[in-house]
Design a protein around this nucleic acid. Sequence first.
DNA 1: CGGTTGTGTGACAGTTCCATGACAAAAACC
DNA 2: GGTTTTTGTCATGGAACTGTCACACAACCG
Lengths: 224, 224
Amino acid sequence: MTAVLVIEDDDRIRLALLLALEEEGYSAIGAATAEEGLRRQREAPADHVLVDLMLPGLDGFECIRRLRRDDDVPIVVVSARDDTHDIVAALEAGADDYVVKPVAIKELSARLRALRRRGRVLADAVPAQVFGELEISAEAGEVRRAGRPVAVTRTEFRLLCELAEHAGRVLSRQQLLRRVWGYETGDERLVDVHVGRLRQKIEPDPANPRHLVTLRGLGYKLQR
Amino acid sequence: MTAVLVIEDDDRIRLALLLALEEEGYSAIGAATAEEGLRRQREAPADHVLVDLMLPGLDGFECIRRLRRDDDVPIVVVSARDDTHDIVAALEAGADDYVVKPVAIKELSARLRALRRRGRVLADAVPAQVFGELEISAEAGEVRRAGRPVAVTRTEFRLLCELAEHAGRVLSRQQLLRRVWGYETGDERLVDVHVGRLRQKIEPDPANPRHLVTLRGLGYKLQR
DNA sequence: CGGTTGTGTGACAGTTCCATGACAAAAACC
DNA sequence: GGTTTTTGTCATGGAACTGTCACACAACCG
C-alpha cells in the first residue's frame, strides 16, 4: 500500500486530505508541524510527502530541504499561493511538484501516480543555475564553465551558492561570513581571499571579473 | 488452479498464509527455508512465490536472485520491515512487489491478481545501468566491466546500486550509511573503505577513478 | 596630488579530509 | 567444524583545504 505523509497545519484541510487520500486507496498519515513530519518520515518513511508552505515554526521550504537531505521521496507542495516565486523556490528547495489549493483529489492522485511512474519529473525541469557560461549544480555538487567541470572546494562552493541564491543583489562581507561560515563576527578579509580564489577558477579573466563583481565598500554580487 | 509457494520461516505465519490462500482459491505450498523453497520451485514450479526477507541461512535477497536466475515467476516479498532500503534492494534483486506484515489477505490476493494481469511491472522499472564500460545489472545482481563479470560482495553491490540510482548526484557519507547500511549514525570511514574496495574492482585505474569519484567535503558520486 | 581607505594576491602553517594497508571479528561456505 | 570470504575498525601518511598575514595596488577624497 502506498503511504502518503501530509504535513499541513490547518486541521480541517489536513483531515480532508487524509480522508480523500484514503478514499483513493492510499495509506495516509498526518503531521501538523514540520518537525513532526520530519520525525515521522525518519521513523516510518512514506512513499510521498505533501507539504504546505505556510507552517508554524520551521517553514515549508526548510522542511523540504531537510526531507530532501535524508531521502529521495517525491515531495509535492500544496500551497494556497499561486505565486511564481514561491513555486520556483519550492522546486529549488527540492520539491517535485506544486499544486494550488483547493486541490482536486483526483488530480492530486494522478500526480502522485505520475511521480511514482516517471520519477522526479519537475525537479529535472529546474536546471542548474546558469550565469552566462557558468553553471552551478548543487545536486551534482559541481560547477561548470563552458560545459567543463571546474574543481571548486567546499567553502568556495557554498560561497558561490550563497551568491547565486541572491543573484544580482549585493551581499556584504558580514552577511557572507554569517551565511557561509556561520561566523557571527570575524575577519572580513577572509571573504576577499575566497572570492579571489573563486575568481581564479570561474572567471575567464580573474583580474576583470564579469560575474563575481566587487562593489567597493559594500560587498560582492553575482550577476549574469 | 493457481499454485503459490510460500517461503517463510515462522511456522505460524506460514500456516496462516497457506490457509488464507487456500481460502482464496489458490493451491498453496509452504517452505521453511530458502533452500527448501528453491528446491521445491525447481521440482514443481508454482505460479507465484511469496518470500520473507528474514530467513535463516540463505537470506531473502539471495533467495530472490536465485529464483530469478532460473525462472520468470512473479515474486512477492512479505516483510515485517517497512524500510525503503529493503524495498529497493528486494526489487533490485528481482522481486515484483513488496508487502508489509501484517498482510491483509484480500490485499495480497488483489496484488497477486494484478501481477498476473500486468506482468512484471515493478521490476521493469529497474533496468540495467551503463556507465561507460561499466554495467550494473540490478536484476541479475551482477556487475560487468568491459563485458566481463566482476565479483563484488553484497555490500559493495548495494553501495554501487545506491550510487547508480542517483547517478550524477552527490551522496554524502551519512546518506550512504543510512541507505546502504541502515545506520542512523556511524563511522563515516566505513564508507571510504568500501568505496576504496569497490574502486579496486570496477575502476581501470583505482588511484584515478573516472566513475566513482570523490567530492571532497561532500561525499561520493557515480558518473558516466 | 598626497593621504587614506579598501581590495587583490602570494606565501605559509595549521588543520581537515581522504586513501589505504593491516588486522580481528563475523559471516558464509563446504 | 574448519576454512575462506566478507565486514568493520584502526592507524598512518599524504594531499587538499583553510585562515592569517603581509604587502602591493587601486579607488576614493580632500
